[in-house]
Design a protein around this nucleic acid. Sequence first.
DNA 1: CCCTTCGCCTGAACCGGTTTAGTGCTCGTC
DNA 2: GACGAGCACTAAACCGGTTCAGGCGAAGGG
Lengths: 349, 349
Amino acid sequence: MDRRPTIADVAKLAGVSRSAVSFALNDRPGLAQETRRRILAAAAELGWRPSRPAQALSRGKAGALGLVLARETDLIGADPFFPAFIAGVESVLSRRGDALVLHVTDPADEAATYRRLAVDRRVDGVLLTDLRVDDRRPALMAELGLPAVVVGDPEGAQGLCAVSLDDRPAFAAAVRELAALGHRRIAHVAGPQEFRHARRRREAWEQAMRAAGLEPGPVLPGGFTAEGGANATLELLARGADRPTAVIYANDLSATAGLAVAQRQGFTVPGDLSVVGYDDTPLAAYTHPPLASARADAQGWGAAAARALDEVITAGRADHVELAPAELRMRGSMGPAPEAPSGAASSTH
Amino acid sequence: MDRRPTIADVAKLAGVSRSAVSFALNDRPGLAQETRRRILAAAAELGWRPSRPAQALSRGKAGALGLVLARETDLIGADPFFPAFIAGVESVLSRRGDALVLHVTDPADEAATYRRLAVDRRVDGVLLTDLRVDDRRPALMAELGLPAVVVGDPEGAQGLCAVSLDDRPAFAAAVRELAALGHRRIAHVAGPQEFRHARRRREAWEQAMRAAGLEPGPVLPGGFTAEGGANATLELLARGADRPTAVIYANDLSATAGLAVAQRQGFTVPGDLSVVGYDDTPLAAYTHPPLASARADAQGWGAAAARALDEVITAGRADHVELAPAELRMRGSMGPAPEAPSGAASSTH
DNA sequence: CCCTTCGCCTGAACCGGTTTAGTGCTCGTC
DNA sequence: GACGAGCACTAAACCGGTTCAGGCGAAGGG
């Protein structure tokens, strides 16, 4: 036999009907123990496993989840979140033999990609990440009748199930700690404000500043990129006596770049400037000085999102899930505020 | 009609048989222009697109490619290669409406994952990345009859089609440039030597050293990780007068960590030590000093790999593809060799 | 002893496409 | 005006599973 074995081959070998094989496979009642054993033995002997396309067709379920990444390639590449998140999703799916269908698209083609995913029936549901302010995807999912789960805070979920992980406590803690270290001018280099998480981080910083009795200092866009972080930092440091003594960045990529550019300008970290990031990339503990950052359990997030989406698919709905918040990791890039802000640092270089 | 439209609905609306619709969809000859137009109009009106599971079943093709990542989560997360590579794969697949099925697994489950992918008929072929020395996957693919393409050099491909991008010229160039800058002791912090690409990079460094008339200096394992890079660097710097004046790292992650730890030890870069990485991560241009590195077109690599795999699937075989080699980007972390190697640097800190 | 009940299994329809054999029609040709 | 060719299209089988309505025989009840 050169072709792959089918359910008919197994049935013939076990001396039963195709339906019996199907029953045994999906362990449904109505088969004698002995028969069931014989069928499974026959299946094992032939190395047979059901064809997923055939199963998908007859069950009306694709047995796959979809994930669409609509970021710029460079942004994804530098973000440790997705690989870990995907690994978490996988850990849940692979147990059931389901699969993850990944699409990387230009932001402009995002809606079309979701549409196709739905119309093609290639996936049973999708995970929505990087939710934007006024994101059209929840409405699109409703229109398409495509089960979906929002990976992020429930506020933007528009009725969809949300699986969230609060990043605000980490930002609040960073502000608190910096304030305790004597910092009064703590700037924020924010992510693109069209993203809800970027905006939420900015708000967390702002609230924590007020709570600490401080005037929220300057906010500059960092775009989640190295270039953005560097440029924002340059601008902040050029403010002379008014310059901040600490900067909280929206992510590690911009923070690391900011750290480097500050040093290039002759400032010491944390002597002249304290720096805090977010993501706790593998590199964070190994920069010079080590970068304070916040760690979120991306893998657990992925697993929880997959489970929630599964429930939405089978049960039609699921409750919001709130995971343990991100935790600040204090490292060498945070230090006491300088006594009196030295103007522009002497150009040691 | 609440259920999704099927080919039968389109046929009825257009007043033709289901086969006619199929013919029109796959634009095959044997339909009058007018009929074809009417059918396509009906399909558009109903918003119908063929169900991929049904197509997969009847065509005997899944319409999807598989990619298995068997790295440690942390390693993947820090590597800018995969997101870009995947984006490239996608750019080819999405044109045809095909999909990418991604599996992230523990290295221990790797073989089982490929087996399942093949037996489940969920994909038509797979991309093999991170080839190891004596990798069993090419043999496994042959056993499973699963079309595959090796993303890497042809030597380890064992008869499979290989799509490769030479990283050696970049390493050779780095050695040449450093030698021209007066460096004589150029160390290498290598990736895990079970990986063919890591080994190839080490060999490229070694050959270039000999070609430059230099004795290949010490090689230390860096594991492609930040921690490994930092540890290796510490060890190299502890060698007193014998310490290297330049280090070429197998990737940017270990290089960046090495750069940081050298500075923490009081060495200046590139004054006391020149540093070169590989990958040209988004951060490389924004470290302090900017990290010399090599850029490979990961996206183009993904696209080429996808095309090659496609050819293997349809034609049974494909020729090796050789892409433009990686290019060294010289940056501030490379500088002239120190006059006389200063012993241990004064601990400036 | 006959009739239900129940446990175990089968046959056939079905999922939504593709594909092949074949039908009916027109046209050109000798 | 019969015949073969060619065009436009259809009917039905097929892909490989799942599912549901029975069928059959043995056990249990009256």
